[in-house]
Amino acid sequence: MSATIFGLLGAALVGIGLFGMLVRVSGVLRLLSFNVLGGGIFLVFGVVARRGAGAGLAGDPVPQALVLTGIVVAFAATTLAVALLLRLGRDGE
Protein backbone atom coordinates (compact mmCIF):
# COMPACT_ATOMS: atom_id res chain seq x y z
CA MET A 1 0.00 0.00 0.00
CA SER A 2 2.71 2.48 0.93
CA ALA A 3 4.44 1.55 -2.33
CA THR A 4 1.37 2.72 -4.26
CA ILE A 5 1.13 5.97 -2.30
CA PHE A 6 4.77 6.82 -2.82
CA GLY A 7 4.60 5.70 -6.44
CA LEU A 8 1.90 8.25 -7.12
CA LEU A 9 3.87 10.80 -5.10
CA GLY A 10 6.88 10.11 -7.31
CA ALA A 11 4.76 10.71 -10.41
CA ALA A 12 3.44 13.97 -8.94
CA LEU A 13 6.96 15.12 -8.03
CA VAL A 14 8.10 14.45 -11.58
CA GLY A 15 5.29 16.66 -12.85
CA ILE A 16 6.07 19.41 -10.32
CA GLY A 17 9.80 19.37 -11.03
CA LEU A 18 9.31 19.30 -14.79
CA PHE A 19 6.96 22.28 -14.56
CA GLY A 20 9.52 24.19 -12.53
CA MET A 21 12.34 23.38 -14.93
CA LEU A 22 10.32 24.62 -17.90
CA VAL A 23 8.63 27.64 -16.32
CA ARG A 24 11.08 29.13 -13.83
CA VAL A 25 13.60 31.48 -15.37
CA SER A 26 16.09 32.07 -12.58
CA GLY A 27 18.96 29.63 -12.80
CA VAL A 28 18.90 28.65 -9.12
CA LEU A 29 15.17 27.92 -9.17
CA ARG A 30 15.55 25.87 -12.34
CA LEU A 31 18.26 23.86 -10.66
CA LEU A 32 16.08 23.33 -7.60
CA SER A 33 13.30 22.08 -9.85
CA PHE A 34 15.77 19.68 -11.45
CA ASN A 35 16.55 18.30 -8.02
CA VAL A 36 12.86 18.03 -7.10
CA LEU A 37 12.34 16.11 -10.34
CA GLY A 38 15.32 13.89 -9.55
CA GLY A 39 13.89 13.13 -6.11
CA GLY A 40 10.64 12.03 -7.75
CA ILE A 41 12.45 9.72 -10.16
CA PHE A 42 14.48 8.17 -7.36
CA LEU A 43 11.22 7.60 -5.51
CA VAL A 44 9.90 5.66 -8.52
CA PHE A 45 13.01 3.48 -8.27
CA GLY A 46 12.30 3.06 -4.56
CA VAL A 47 8.74 1.95 -5.26
CA VAL A 48 9.99 -0.54 -7.84
CA ALA A 49 12.45 -1.83 -5.23
CA ARG A 50 9.79 -2.12 -2.53
CA ARG A 51 7.44 -4.01 -4.85
CA GLY A 52 10.27 -6.44 -5.58
CA ALA A 53 10.69 -7.45 -1.92
CA GLY A 54 11.41 -11.12 -1.54
CA ALA A 55 13.95 -13.79 -0.64
CA GLY A 56 14.22 -12.36 2.85
CA LEU A 57 14.98 -8.86 1.61
CA ALA A 58 12.61 -5.97 2.37
CA GLY A 59 13.21 -4.58 -1.10
CA ASP A 60 14.96 -5.43 -4.35
CA PRO A 61 18.52 -4.20 -3.62
CA VAL A 62 19.34 -3.55 -7.31
CA PRO A 63 17.16 -0.44 -7.80
CA GLN A 64 18.17 0.73 -4.32
CA ALA A 65 21.80 0.58 -5.37
CA LEU A 66 20.96 2.42 -8.61
CA VAL A 67 19.42 5.24 -6.58
CA LEU A 68 22.57 5.59 -4.45
CA THR A 69 24.62 5.99 -7.61
CA GLY A 70 22.02 8.32 -9.09
CA ILE A 71 21.96 10.63 -6.05
CA VAL A 72 25.72 11.13 -6.18
CA VAL A 73 25.66 11.75 -9.94
CA ALA A 74 22.79 14.25 -9.59
CA PHE A 75 24.71 16.04 -6.85
CA ALA A 76 27.77 16.30 -9.08
CA ALA A 77 25.58 17.77 -11.82
CA THR A 78 24.18 20.30 -9.36
CA THR A 79 27.65 21.44 -8.30
CA LEU A 80 28.62 21.93 -11.94
CA ALA A 81 25.54 24.03 -12.63
CA VAL A 82 26.07 26.08 -9.46
CA ALA A 83 29.67 26.79 -10.43
CA LEU A 84 28.47 28.03 -13.83
CA LEU A 85 25.70 30.16 -12.31
CA LEU A 86 28.12 31.74 -9.83
CA ARG A 87 30.55 32.50 -12.60
CA LEU A 88 27.83 34.13 -14.71
CA GLY A 89 26.46 36.06 -11.73
CA ARG A 90 29.90 37.31 -10.82
CA ASP A 91 30.63 38.50 -14.35
CA GLY A 92 27.31 40.31 -14.37
CA GLU A 93 28.31 42.58 -11.49
Binding site: V14, G38, I41, V44, V47, V48, R51
Partner: peptide
Protein backbone atom coordinates in the same frame (compact mmCIF):
# COMPACT_ATOMS: atom_id res chain seq x y z
CA UNK B 1 16.55 7.89 -16.07
CA UNK B 2 12.80 7.91 -15.51
CA UNK B 3 12.46 5.51 -18.41
CA UNK B 4 15.10 3.25 -16.85
CA UNK B 5 13.07 3.09 -13.62
CA UNK B 6 9.89 2.14 -15.49
CA UNK B 7 11.63 -0.52 -17.59
CA UNK B 8 13.17 -2.12 -14.53
CA UNK B 9 9.79 -2.05 -12.81
Amino acid sequence: LLGVALIYG
